[in-house]
């Protein structure tokens, strides 16, 4: 085909092709450059923080000491969010793919998309003003009855602005992406496998357990990891919901909570000066690397399992 083109086209036409082809290639390169640029610029602006002293790092003796509690909070909040969201998402995805009638399934799909369309700042507003106060009685109950579990050691927060509330909001926010991907994968289970299971007398649950889940396992893992990436980097909902003290604790319901990297940046960036800005950017770099690795791994699993998502 290319030989035909070369012969048929006048030099002018080939110039047009050359320009256009290189234009599109340049656009693709721009994206690669942008991604590299993120890493480069964050590193350049972040470097001064790695050698900064306590006076610039809110009293922390080094950058690692500064970022560790934030990293802890980030991981804790994201892990909790996933623990809540993944089972729910699998349930919803199963409803759509295997339980609900076609028409209802489409409607559910739309509603889940709606959940994804709500801006994060609105989730933050709702979480801070509505959900948090509503959860206070639950936290008090947990602190009264289950305080032997370290997670619920209490004393219960009276405002509801705890890391558990933040995680619940995060869970709602990652639900759509985990659902969407799980749904795709469940729907792609070979029809024959399912029908074979049913023909052997399996109940619907046994069919799902025996033919859908084994097929979808790696897909669910990568869906959860993409959700994890989203939860790690989500900023506003946490910044607006959490009353953060920057401590390291597993107590989920008290008023003294760890902060997260993203929320810490959002809350303090406007007020930061000098090296503090560099420290925030460096913490952003840490976040970038972590989310990059998580997303990278998730996409790798997807591409390896040969299920197109």
């Amino acid at each position: 085909m290319s030989t035909i083109e070369a012969k048929a086209g006048s030099p002018k036409r080939r110039l047009g092709d050359l320009v256009f082809a290189n234009l599109t290639r340049a656009a693709g390169l721009t994206i690669l450059l942008a991604l590299a640029g993120v890493a480069v610029f964050l590193t350049i602006e972040g470097i001064p923080a790695f050698t900064a002293g306590p006076e610039d790092l809110k009293g922390a003796s080094s950058f690692v000491v500064y970022v560790w509690p934030l990293l802890f909070g980030t991981l804790l909040a994201a892990a909790l969010a996933l623990a809540i969201a993944v089972p729910l998402a699998i349930g919803v995805a199963l409803t759509v793919s295997h339980y609900a009638p076609r028409r209802i399934a489409t409607l559910i799909g739309y509603l889940i998309d709606l959940l994804a369309a709500v801006p994060s700042v609105v989730y933050g507003l709702w979480g801070g003003l509505f959900l948090g106060p509503k959860l206070v009685p639950l936290y008090e109950w947990l602190a009264d009855h289950l305080s032997f579990i370290p997670f619920f050691a209490g004393p219960a927060s009276t405002t509801g602005r705890t890391i558990l509330t933040a995680s619940i909001v995060l869970a709602i926010m990652v639900l759509p992406i985990v659902t969407a991907i799980s749904r795709e994968i469940f729907a792609q289970t070979p029809r024959l496998n399912e029908e074979a299971a049913l023909a052997l007398g399996a109940t619907r649950w046994e069919m799902i357990r025996l033919s859908v889940f084994p097929y979808a396992r790696s897909g669910i893992v990568s869906a959860a990891m993409l959700g994890l990436g989203r939860a790690l980097g989500e900023t506003m909902a946490v910044a607006m919901v959490l009353s953060a003290s920057g401590v390291v604790t597993f107590n989920l319901i008290s008023s003294t909570n760890p902060s997260t990297i993203a929320a810490n940046i959002a809350l303090t960036f406007a007020d930061a000066t000098g090296i503090q800005v560099n420290a925030l950017i460096a913490s952003g770099l840490v976040l970038f690397v972590i989310t990059f690795v998580v997303n990278f791994a998730a996409r790798w699993i997807v591409s390896r399992s040969e299920v197109s998502v």
């Binding site: 994206i31 993120v38 959002a266 952003g284």
Partner: peptide
Amino acid sequence: IRFLVDVMTGIPSIVAGLFAYAL
């Protein structure tokens, strides 16, 4: 490019903001 674009969809928005600022 295809792979990195996929990975890029997962960039936290705050990191995008920091990048713009650093730039």
